[in-house]
């Protein structure tokens, strides 16, 4: 009897399959190592002591654990300021993005919207053709947004891709009967929008909010072009400037004497910075990832 069971198993996994599985597992494990190792290394290095990092003794686990790097990062003037700015840009930017996207997508989802096809064309056309960086830069410059917080919030206020996801969701997942029923009950369009449609669309709204929020958190390009003032710059741009500078000047810290003579300060600051700047996204990660995957599927529905 037992022999038969073993046999049955063997039939299920012929030699060819076992070779295939060996290959599959090897490749997947390799990929995972390649993705994870840099992250583990940087986290370990950021918690190690400066001397050990400078000597290159850190490979996998923290050596002589210390929090010096984090102390240095948190007393760096531009970093904390950049952090505050990024939080502001992410919150304000995402709010503006979501409002604009929703009020654009809802009318387009209504079949009785006048000139719907025309507007849809107007929006999708820009996915394929655009004025480009320079005219946009000159425009932002000439309306006086350059070097203000608005340059990061307004010109990129809507992504057509997210708008299409939202519109498709409104169209396919909210039954049109609900609109008819509320109209018969004498409900205005505005009331329907706020009391019926929005509560039913929480899924898509969280997806696009996360898309926008992650985008704002990681964005540095618009800041690179538009913002010259250090006190307005978001964290990513501050990080970039620190990375590009060959040496970290002690004057950038609130308490230069404390940092003076710290061995391997530059290395520690760089590693700790990566952790500090990515930690918020990583904490949200499991949750963000689920919604991202959902959003990709929502977006792949043609419409």
């Amino acid at each position: 009897m037992a022999a038969k069971v073993v046999n049955a198993r063997k039939i299920k996994h012929p030699l060819e399959d076992r070779i295939l599985y060996a290959v599959v597992y090897t490749i997947i494990i390799l990929f995972c190592i390649v993705v994870l190792y840099p992250i583990i290394f940087v986290v370990s290095a950021s918690f190690s002591s400066g001397t050990e990092v400078q000597l290159g003794h850190v490979y996998l686990w923290p050596v002589k654990p210390s929090l010096d790097g984090y102390e240095a990062v948190f007393s760096h003037k531009n970093v904390m300021n950049g952090y505050r700015n990024t939080l502001f840009y992410t919150l304000a930017g995402t709010t503006i993005n979501v409002i604009i996207t929703v009020i654009c997508a809802y009318p387009l989802s209504r079949r009785d919207m006048p000139m719907r096809g025309f507007f849809m064309f107007l929006y999708t056309f820009t996915m394929f053709f655009g004025g480009g960086l320079i005219p946009t830069y000159l425009l932002v410059n000439s309306i006086g947004m350059n070097n203000t917080i608005w340059a990061l919030l307004i010109p990129g206020a809507m992504s057509v891709y997210n708008m299409i996801i939202t519109r498709t969701f409104f169209q396919n997942s909210v039954p049109v009967e609900l609109l008819e029923a509320s109209q018969i009950d004498g409900c205005s369009d505005a009331r329907y929008f706020f009391s019926v449609l929005l509560p039913l669309s929480q899924a898509v709204i969280s997806v696009i909010s996360l898309y926008y929020a992650v985008g704002h958190w990681n964005s540095y390009f618009s800041a690179l072009i538009y913002l010259r003032k250090v006190e307005l710059q978001p964290l990513q741009l501050v990080l970039r400037n620190i990375l590009l500078a060959t040496r970290i000047s002690l004057n950038e810290f609130e308490d230069p004497d404390l940092m003076d003579g710290m061995v391997g300060l530059e290395f520690l600051v760089k590693y700790a910075l990566i952790v500090v700047s990515t930690a918020p996204i990583m904490c949200l990660y499991p949750f963000v990832q689920k919604f991202f995957a959902k959003g990709v599927m929502l977006g792949s529905v043609k419409g």
Binding site: I103, L108, M113, L122, G131, P135, L139, I154, M158
Partner: peptide, 29 residues
């Protein structure tokens, strides 16, 4: 009859014309 939804759509259209279509004329540079 659909004035409300049309109005709702207006802000985005204006933003869009300003920030996506106005720069297109910039290609004459």
């Amino acid at each position: 009859d659909n004035l409300e939804i049309f109005l709702l759509h207006l802000p985005t259209t204006i933003w869009y014309l300003l920030f996506c279509y106005a720069p297109m004329f910039g290609i004459i540079i």
